[in-house]
Design a protein around this nucleic acid. Structure first.
Ligand code: MN
Ligand code: MN
Ligand code: ZN
Ligand code: ZN
Lengths: 138, 138
DNA sequence: TAAACAGATGCAACTTTGTTGCAAAATAAT
DNA sequence: ATTATTTTGCAACAAAGTTGCATCTGTTTA
């Protein structure tokens, strides 16, 4: 775990600091997605709110995490698989939000389907967010 | 236009007030989606911010408008087609965000595709948001 | 290893966004 | 026209996010 964290930071040419290590650990030891608020709480308010914002921003830019849009206006973050890098995100998988337990997760094995757009439209990225009940809440 | 607005409000058993009429007009004379901020600006700050919030909330509940999640955390609203009602939304179409001009629109003719979820998952709603270039920005 | 450098952090102050209670005003019903 | 019901605006507040700047920490170099 410690190793994995350091690897990721080094690979992305980021200096190894307390907040980055701690926040990355949170993502690694968690299967679901995390909201900004979750992170603040689970770091035990050890870091300034501003630092958390900036750390997440850096991770986003480097392609270490990606953001997941939700219908209730909150932004969630989840780890990217290793083929994402600075600028390029290749997270073409479906996201699932459980209405019962609230968990939001990446369905890495469910790829987003092709969409036929009207004439003249060019697509760049397709986001699919599914609401429902996860396998633990049935 | 005036008639259409009154019809919609009456059909939904809403009293006809200045803010409701004005905000509904905005939606009718606009093809794209509107953010809360757009609405405040385009009503000329004529109504209190709180009133705009509450009006949008009422329209949402009644199924007059629906909300569109975007990757940058902002919530957009667009008119529902007439088969939506209190509680039930039937907006199973794809939403498109133009990276060039920023417009967000409903692609009413593009229905959301079926998604094969893993065993044990039950879906309720599927949101598809496509980024790219609209037909005016090519 | 120590000094120098670059980058990250915390703090304060601020902006923007959203919420709530309540009295006044507007709308609808009688 | 009077009454009853909703809606509105205000004020006060809470939550979320941003920015500049001085200080501190991690990294590099000698
Ligand atoms: Mn994901
Ligand atoms: Mn729509
Ligand atoms: Zn669940
Ligand atoms: Zn466009």
């Amino acid at each position: 775990m410690q190793e994995a964290v350091q690897d990721i930071l080094k690979k992305n040419q980021l200096s190894i600091t307390g907040s980055r290590v701690k926040i990355l650990e949170l993502f690694l030891e968690q299967q679901g997605a995390l909201a900004h608020g979750d992170i603040e709480r689970r770091t035990g308010e050890k870091f300034d709110r501003v630092t958390v914002y900036r750390t997440l921003q850096v991770f986003l830019n480097k392609g270490i995490i990606h953001s997941i849009p939700t219908s209730d206006n909150s932004v969630l973050y989840a780890l990217c698989k290793d083929d994402c890098g600075e600028g390029h995100h290749h997270d073409n998988h479906v996201h699932f939000v459980c209405d019962a337990c609230g968990t939001t997760m990446c369905l890495d094995d469910v790829t987003v389907p092709a969409i036929r757009l009207p004439k003249g439209f060019k697509f760049n990225q397709i986001q699919v967010v599914v609401n429902g009940r996860c396998k633990d809440c049935n």
